[in-house]
Every structure is written in C-alpha cells, then in structure tokens.
Design a protein around this nucleic acid. Structure first.
Length: 751
DNA sequence: CTATGTAAACAAC
DNA sequence: GTTGTTTACATAG
C-alpha cells in the first residue's frame, strides 16, 4: 500500500479558525452522566412462569403484572398523577429484593386517563382486554440530555476515580448496589449537583480539566483495584479485545469532561492496555488518529484559545461506556453474558484482527414485548401485521439478518448536534424517534422498499430510530466547527438524489417513488461509502462502540435477548442493518465543496435521512415523551416501522437512556401519564399514512399505538425510556374500538 | 458488504 | 515532530 499509484491526491485542507467556538459551549461539555448500562439478564427461560401475572399493588395505586413473555419483567401501570419517583424507588427496592431471579425489570406505562381515548384512562378501571402484543423498543444509548448530571455519583474529584466508578451497578457482584450511578436513589438527591456549573472561565477550567484528565490518564493504577479497574487484565502482551474506537471511547469517557487530547488518549490506552505500550507497533497511534478522524462520533473541540484540541464524543453517540463498565459486564454472572464476553476476549489473541470485541451492542431494549393479554388473545402480531411488510420482513432475509445485531446503526447522527431541534423546547433530552427518517410520507413505503429491494436490509426502516438528541446544549461549541460542516454535507448527500456523481441511479422514477428512490440511493451511497471511508457519520452510536448492554444475544441473533424477548421480536431481527450511514457518498468531492473542513463528507446536507430530526419539529414540539416522534414527522410509519424494522433486532437508538433515573425524571415530566393510547392518538399515527396504500397498514395503525414508557432495570439501576408499540389485532372487532382500548383491556391484571 | 486494522501521503501547526 | 485527514488496501465475518 504504500505507494499505491492510485493514491489520490490530497487536496489541501484548511483549517477553520473557529476561534472560539467552544467558548460557548464549553460548558456544555458537561458531562453526561454515565450511562447505565442496561443489561438484562436475559434469561431466556423464564418465560412462562413469570408470565403469570400477579398483580401487585403499589402504594400509589400502581398496577403491576408480570410480563407474559419476558422473564423477570413486569409491567407497571402508573396512574397519571402518581409520584413516579416514589414508584421507581419502590420498584427498585422490589427488584433488588428479588435479585436476579425475581422481577428486576419494570416497564412503566401510564395508565392514567388517556386523554384521547377515554376508556382506559385508568387502567384500573378497565376490564380486561387482551392486549395483543406490544413491543417495546428502546435504546439504551445514552446520551443523555444535556442535563447534566454528570456523574453524580462519583466523587467529584473523581480523579482517578473513574475507575472506580465503575461500580456499575454492582450487579455482577451481586451486590445490590444502590450506588450505581444510575441508581434511582439519586434521583432525589441530585438536584443540583455540582455539575452544572460549567464553565465560565473556560480556559481556566480547561486547564484544570486537563490536568485532571491527564492525571487520570496517567493514573498508574490503571490496573487499580482489581475490581474496579479498568485496565486490561490480561497480560500485557495480549492485545485487548476492543477496537480502537472503543478504546478511544473508554479513554474519553474516563474523564470527567468527556474529552481528551490526543496525547492523553494515547497515554490512557497505554496505561490501560500495556500491549500498546510495549508491544504494538508504533503505528497504533496512527490508527488512533485515523479512528478519531474517521468516525463522526469523535468530535474535536478546540480550546478557547485555540491551542488545545480535545477530542470528545458526540453526545448523541456517546454511550458513556467506560472500560470499567465493560469489564464488569464481562464479569457478569450471567452465563450467557459471560459466554459472550469470554468469547470476545479470548478470541482475539490469536486472531488479531478479530477483535470485534466490543461488547455486543445490543439494542438494548429494543426488545419487543408482547403482552399476551389473555392467552387466548395472545395474538400474534402477525395477524394484524399481515402487511406485506411483515411478510417480507419475516422473510428469510430478515431472519437471516439476525446475524448481527447491530444496535446502532450508523445512522447518521450527523445532524444531531446540529439540529437545533426544532422543538427543542421540551426537554433537552432526546426524543426518540422511531421510524426511520424517511420522508414523512410513507410509512408504507418503507415497506415497499423492502419489497422492492429485498436484498437489503430494511434499510431505512431499520434505521430506526434515532435518537436525536443531541442535546444541543451539551455540545458545546465545538461542534460547530466540525459539525456544521457535517450537517450540511450530510444532508445533502442523503437527500439530494441528484447529484450524486457516482451512480446516477438512473432516473428516478416517478416522484412518487422518491422515497424509495432515496432509499436506493442511500444504499448505493452506502456502497460507495464503503469504498472510501470517510468520516463515519455518527452513528447513532457507533456500531462498534461497545455497548454495554448485555443482552445481546450471545452470539446469535437475539439481540434483545436481554429481556427475554419474545420470540417474535427476535426473529425479525434483522435488518436494519442500519443504514449506516448515509452520508455523503462521495468522498472526495466533498472536500472541494466544502473548503471548510477537511472532511467534507460528513457535511453533506442535512436533509437526508436524518431528516427525521429535522422534521419532527412540528410534532416534536410536542412533548417529549409521548408521542413518538417520528422522524420526519411521519408518524405513520412508526408502527410499521417498528415492525418492519424489527425493532427487536434493529437497533434503535432512539431511546434515550437516562443515566440515572433521576435524570430521567428531571428531564421531563414524565408523561407516563399519557396513555398509550393517547399517544397513539390518531393524529400522530395517522398522519403518516398519507400514502400508505395498504389498508392493512392502516388498520394496523388503528390498532396499534406507540407510546412511551419507561423501563426500570433494577439490575442496572437504569431507567430508560422506551417506546411501546402496542398492537391490538383483534381490536377491530372489539366493541370498544381501538380508541376505546386501554391497557386495562389488555392487561386485566393491571387493575 | 461491512467493520476494522494498517500504512501512508499530506496538510497545518 | 505532532496532530488531523483522507486514501488505499487487507481481512474477518
């Protein structure tokens, strides 16, 4: 390779001055918190017994039932006016008591009156219906909102601490820790952590931070306390099973400010993974740099004075993984997990290249949940789902796709940051979006696409969700420099069908098909991209990133396993391969276009896929929570999307995780209140449909609703938002009609 | 094909 | 020399 004749010329790059970009934001850096890793024990087994529902009541009038298909998981219907915190606290306690064998995961949904759909407001009231199936999807990612919370838990000083931080939930150890960062208990406390403060004198701070960071980096202890530490346990000579990308993330996330200079990154890696210090060829540093430049998730920030460059992880993409966390997971008791881990770890040595080590990124909670309502009812989603889509999805391909579960597709985060989120208003948090970012229009289309293009994975659909949210605020300024560019370019690429130099795709067909065309385009682009890799768009979380989730299926397909997913979910898995990027297809050209940054590619215009982000505005504006925002506003698709996408399989990042429950709570007023149905409400759901041809689809939508709920995992002490896709196949027949339905119907026990 | 790893050419400091 | 970008190529899955 070296001199390959083909080597393209490199155009000159100019660096933008961006003087102070960061200034503004600096503060933002704040640290996010930590991510909770979610894990779940996925034990498959359980299914049934658990299923039995035992409704328990909580103080607040909460109804709790065992999830029919997910082991150790209970569905908690929370009255609108209930005190969520207290409920969470109670559930946490309960979960901890139960330990790994008992219910340790709770899906909270509001049962209060659903505005729109009356019948069910109070779940209690309801009778029984059968719910058909529900799917929950969530993502664990964690970008949290800006809010910051930083790490609460940790000692501020944190210095070296980070390693210790780990704690992580102790789960593994079996300790019920409450200390975990995500622990709910903090909720109450955290209010004002120190976190908030940010900046001000940036420079000063920067310096300070740097020190800290450096110090951390240097910490010798790398290995530190065994339990905690992160250092790579294996012999120094062994190459760690983590990709460069993962290691970079670990390094960056090990600092409080979540940023690190290149040099510190080198140092951190050397300290934690002796292999690089002693054995690896010097070229590893080149690789680090390469990775930093290549992946959009890594954002370079310049200090106020412009002299120091810090590398940060885009909040939208940052899962806040730390080596400790990962490590702990590995330790996890759960056999399956271990298996996975071990595999990973072990592998590598020999095979060096194989490191794919990152933890399996699971899509966390994307697991679909089915509520069997009544057994009888347990419908198969299929019933209603008949969509062609479904069929197609189901098709072998999908199944096949299961190959990898990618959690995070590379969606483009690009926008993320940028996007000023329209609404932003609500919370900073992210909102989730489901669906893909296709054009608003079609929900169905997605389907078609697939049909059309079988080969691919469900492209966009898959893309699922996204997350959005970049907490704008969080990203400080820096982004601007890079990001801006990015944003533009990205979008362009995606959208504009036009210009792609490369393939002309041929004419687009009719406008109507735009969508599909677009999709196609994307694919092509993707391919193109593959050739040259430009900066990878942020992916939602990058694929590679290490995810903590556990669940990932061990190997196989089941991603969601954690939860014990129902089979259903699993199967589909698929696809989604996530459209990874989408981004700008062309590599080269970009540069020229955008003189600005060197990396043009990213920048392409914003329209594309990401559009969802943009789009939502209208809707988005709404609540954060509830309604699912569909990417583009096309809600309609959601349902479909969900299915199609395979939520289960697909990674959706959308769901925001909250590092700490507290965060979650704070972030928004929860809307548990909103009733599922309400959310479904027509407006949203329907909207999308515009084009959807299929009646079926329509029906689906009618019967299905998306709503947001929360998943409380006491094993992790994590609280995540999730989207629930509830379908009621039988509803039509139901006298009440879809609208009238309430959870209660489905879950009699809720009462 | 994709994701990753490596090497390398350049550019800007 | 360091830091960043971007290609090219290789390879495992």
């Amino acid at each position: 390779m070296k001199t390959s004749p083909r080597r393209p010329l490199i155009l000159k790059r100019r660096r933008l001055p961006l003087p102070d970009q960061n200034a503004p934001g600096e503060t933002s850096e704040e640290e996010p918190k930590r991510p909770p890793a979610q894990q779940e024990p996925s034990q498959v087994q359980a299914s049934k017994e658990v299923a039995e529902s035992n409704p328990c009541k909580f103080p607040a009038g909460i109804k709790i039932i065992n999830h029919p298909t997910m082991p150790n998981t209970q569905v908690v219907a929370v009255p609108n006016n209930a005190n969520i915190q207290s409920i969470i606290t109670a559930l946490t306690a309960k979960g901890k008591e139960s330990g790994s064998n008992g219910p340790n995961k709770f899906i909270l949904i509001s049962c209060g009156g659903a505005p729109t759909h009356p019948p069910g407001p109070q779940p209690q009231a309801q009778t029984s219906h059968e719910p058909k199936s529900t799917e929950v999807i969530t993502e664990t990612l964690g970008p949290k909102s800006a809010s910051r919370d930083t790490n609460l838990p940790k000692p501020p000083a944190a210095l070296p601490g980070r390693r210790w931080e780990s704690y992580a939930g102790g789960e593994a150890a079996g300790c019920p820790l409450d200390n975990s960062l995500t622990n709910i208990q903090w909720l109450g406390k955290m209010t004002s952590d120190g976190l908030g403060s940010c900046s001000i004198k940036q420079e000063v701070e920067e310096k300070e931070n740097r020190h800290l960071e450096q110090s951390q980096a240097k910490d010798p202890q790398v290995e530190g306390p065994p339990g905690t530490s992160a250092s790579w346990p294996h012999s120094a000579s062994e190459r760690p099973p983590y990709s460069y990308m993962a290691m970079i993330q670990f390094a960056i996330n090990s600092t409080e400010r979540k940023r690190m200079t290149l040099k510190d990154i080198y140092t951190w890696i050397e300290d934690h993974f002796p292999y690089f210090k002693h054995i690896a060829k010097p070229g590893w540093k080149n690789s680090i740099r390469h990775n930093l430049s290549l992946h959009d998730m890594f954002v370079r920030e310049t200090s106020a004075n412009g002299k120091v460059s810090f590398w940060t992880i885009h909040p939208s993409a940052n899962r806040y993984l730390t080596l400790d966390q990962v490590f702990k997971q590995q330790k996890r008791p759960n056999p399956e997990l271990r298996r996975n881990m071990s595999i990973k770890t072990e592998l590598p040595l020999g095979a060096r290249r194989k490191m794919k080590p990152l933890l399996p990124r699971v899509s966390s909670y994307l697991v679909p949940i089915q509520f069997p309502v009544n057994q009888a009812l347990v419908l198969q989603p299929s019933v209603k789902v008949p969509l062609p889509l479904a069929a197609s999805l189901m098709s072998s391909e999908l199944a096949r796709h299961s190959k990898r579960v990618r959690i995070a597709p590379k969606v483009l985060l690009a926008d993320e940051g940028i996007a000023p989120l329209p609404t932003a208003g609500p919370v900073k948090e992210e909102k989730l979006l489901l669906g893909e970012g296709l054009s608003p229009l079609l929900p169905v289309q997605g389907i078609k696409e697939e049909e059309i293009l079988p080969g691919e994975e469900a492209p966009h659909l898959g893309r699922p969700i996204k997350v959005e949210s970049p907490p704008l605020e969080e990203w400080p300024s820096p982004c601007p420099s890079v990001k801006e560019e990015l944003s533009q370019s990205w979008e362009d690429s995606s959208h504009s069908p036009t210009p792609r130099p490369r393939k002309a795709h041929g004419g687009h067909k009719s406008p109507a098909r735009c969508v599909s065309d677009m999709l196609v385009i994307k694919r092509r682009e993707r391919r193109e991209m593959s050739r040259s890799r430009r900066k990878q768009h942020l992916l939602p979380p990058c694929l590679d990133e290490p995810e903590l989730l556990f669940a990932e299926g061990p190997g196989p397909s089941r991603p969601a396993t954690d939860l014990a997913l129902p089979a259903v979910s699993t199967r589909p898995a698929s696809q989604l391969s996530c459209s990874q990027e989408e981004g700008g297809p062309f590599k080269t050209p970009v540069k020229e276009t955008l003189p600005i940054s060197s990396t043009p590619s990213k920048s392409v215009l914003p329209m594309s896929p990401e559009s969802w982000r943009l789009t939502p505005p209208a809707k988005v504006g709404g609540l954060d929570f509830s309604p699912v925002r569909t990417p583009q506003g096309a809600l309609g698709p959601l349902p479909d999307a969900l299915e199609l996408t395979d939520l289960g399989t697909t990674p959706m990042k959308s769901v925001p995780l909250f590092d700490s429950p507290r965060e979650l709570l704070n972030s928004e007023p929860f809307d548990l209140t909103s009733d599922p149905f309400s959310s479904c409400s027509p407006s949203d759901m329907e909207v999308p449909k515009p084009g959807s041809p299929e009646p079926q689809v329509a029906s689906l939508s009618a019967n299905r609703s998306l709503t947001e709920g929360l998943v409380l995992d006491t094993m992790n002490d994590s609280l995540s938002r999730i989207l629930l896709d509830i379908s009621f196949p039988g509803l039509e027949e139901d006298p009440l009609g879809p609208d009238g339905i309430s959870w209660a119907h489905f879950i009699p026990d809720l009462r």
